[in-house]
Design a protein around this nucleic acid. Structure first.
Lengths: 124, 124
DNA sequence: CAGGCTAGGTTTCCGATAGGAACCAGCAGG
DNA sequence: CCTGCTGGTTCCTATCGGAAACCTAGCCTG
């Protein structure tokens, strides 16, 4: 009587679960959001995001690329220039991500309030 | 010309960013989804989710509780019974999460295809 | 009435991961 | 020749994740 069917994000072998884990990462959502308005350079993302290290950014981008969500374009210039942009598949993720960031903007303060209000109350 | 304003999930001190990091966790989305249809017991979640350890489940639930997204109800019975349910605040997260899981269900296979298709191609 | 069962939670231990700092490549300009 | 720009990688450590054992507390069974 659980009401969950196959394809739900349960049971480790279903693709939905894998995809959820893809984006359930500290930086993935922010990076994808940063790419949502067009191609962006590596360095721009660093400044834009703030708090991410070059290593983590590169690592996140590589993973997204491997999963087919973004495309990497390296120009043979000096100094080097590398741009990243969403693939069509990656672009389909923007809507769900926008909902998340909208939720975050609307409810972020409520979450913060709860954080210092409740000393982990237990109702019984 | 970045086009991102305050409240966008950038810059570590904004509440949106904090809220995004709240759910950008391996288990959070799955656990919240598991609670989306009503109160569920600890043990039920373990079986339902599959792959999560008791430790991580407890830890995730505690964090969600501290952030005001779920409520814990411990019945003084033997053997013990503990139910978790979404708070009104937590319930507002279900819509965004549904979009994510829908995306995952629709595009999970495409992601998997990309994974073994592309040997990390570089377009330059 | 000793010992086992239950269900939720915690502790211990160890391998995996995150992430900062420092370093590298490669060429232009002073 | 030495420095700087940009993207990326390596090294090292603090933290995290997960399996398994243990704990609590009452009921049930032999």
């Amino acid at each position: 009587m659980s009401g969950f069917g196959p394809g739900d994000p349960f049971l480790a072998d279903c693709p939905a679960r894998l995809a959820v884990e893809l984006i359930a990462d500290k930086w993935t959502v922010v990076v994808l959001y940063g790419l949502s308005k067009g191609p962006v350079r590596h360095g721009e993302l660093i400044e834009l995001i703030g708090g991410i290290s070059r290593k983590m950014l590169t690592q996140t981008l590589r993973r997204l690329q491997a999963h087919g969500l973004i495309r990497r374009h390296a120009y043979a210039e000096v100094p080097p220039r590398v741009e990243y942009e969403l693939t069509p598949l990656g672009a389909t993720l923007i809507d769900p991500i926008h909902m998340l960031t909208e939720w975050a903007r609307a409810n972020g303060d409520a979450v913060l309030d709860a954080l210092d209000a409740e000393p982990v109350a237990d109702s019984d």
